[in-house]
Amino acid sequence: MEANRLATESAHRLELEAAFLHAQQRRRRWLFLMRLTLNLCGVALFLLLWESVPWLFPTINKVLFPTPSVVFSAFWPMLLSGEIVLNIGVSVRRAATGFVLAAFVGIAAGVFTARSRVADYLTEPLLHGFRSVPVIALVPLSVLWFGIGEGAKIALVATGAFFPIWIATFIGVRDVNLVYLRSAACLGAGKLATMFLVVLPAALPLILAGLRQAMAISLIVLVAAELSGATSGVAYMMSMGHQLFRVDIMFIGLMLLGTLGFVFDRLFVWLTRRLFPWYVN
């Protein structure tokens, strides 16, 4: 009797658990689909509103304010001809090279200034002084000095991206919890092991924040550099559109830049989750 009752009870329990888990899964799937649908709906609504502006305000100049359909009909042949892909490739390469360069130099400088008091005090006024100068203000000078070559553009991007990475790494490394350092010391870790296994991972949340900010800055500096003298790139394409009075091409550039920034940010977040599973924000 008793055994029977227990068996029924446990069967009932398993049944409830299965039903519960199934419901949870369905709920998650539904939320995912709803999010996707609403995301797309938002974009569609925006495009629809944009498309209808000339209908709502008939006095508007359609050349100065191209609708999505006009922009798209200009975009499609440019995409097929490979022009768009080429310009995106050139721009991404410039931004990425500059960014990666800045990441290495910025993290190294941040660690160095945070760990050496002499280096910190020596470079303090210089770094903070240069940091305050918007890198865009260096663009004309860079064109005069170095021309409009690839190196000059990459250097400008790297300069812009360097400062947020440096300052974030500096703060992250400087403010590493003393308990971590003491733990490492009493477990027998030397200087190098402490740096790579303890200090850098502990400073990682801040370093990542600096890198993310630097990514956004890279894009800004890239556009400024390309606008002021280039023979290819997304912003160059826009400046050509400007000179040819092709506002639709300028709009293509804007949308490409928005998409690039968005995609790279998502990519960054995804990569962070993959590489650092322990890092929960």
Partner: peptide, 21 residues
């Protein structure tokens, strides 16, 4: 002298390395 593994220390909290299992 310096801290070392012959003297194990257990701190109040937050001393485990969060990036390690």
């Amino acid at each position: 002298g310096e801290p070392g593994p012959d003297r194990g220390v257990v701190f109040q909290e937050y001393a485990l390395f969060g990036w390690m299992t």
